[in-house]
Amino acid sequence: MNFDKELDARGLNCPLPILRAKKALAEMTSGQVLRIIATDPGSVKDFQAFAKQTGNELLSSAENNKEFEFYIKRK
């Protein structure tokens, strides 16, 4: 999947992945896609909730090899 910006949140724990993602999205323009890689297992549900609350669209959420990958489209 194409993306405009990438956030490496590996090794970071709650709530840092969400806070960093929020900051990254704030610097992007509407329609751009942010790719996030995280290792916090709680981030799967957290990014779902984050997307629902903020209106930014969670395009995909996947796990491979204990790493979680998210694509979020800025509102």
Binding site: I18, A21, A49
Partner: peptide, 11 residues
């Protein structure tokens, strides 16, 4: 601080 910063990130 965890709850405050997260809530602020949620808008």
């Amino acid at each position: 601080f965890i709850l405050a910063s997260t809530a602020a990130a949620l808008g």
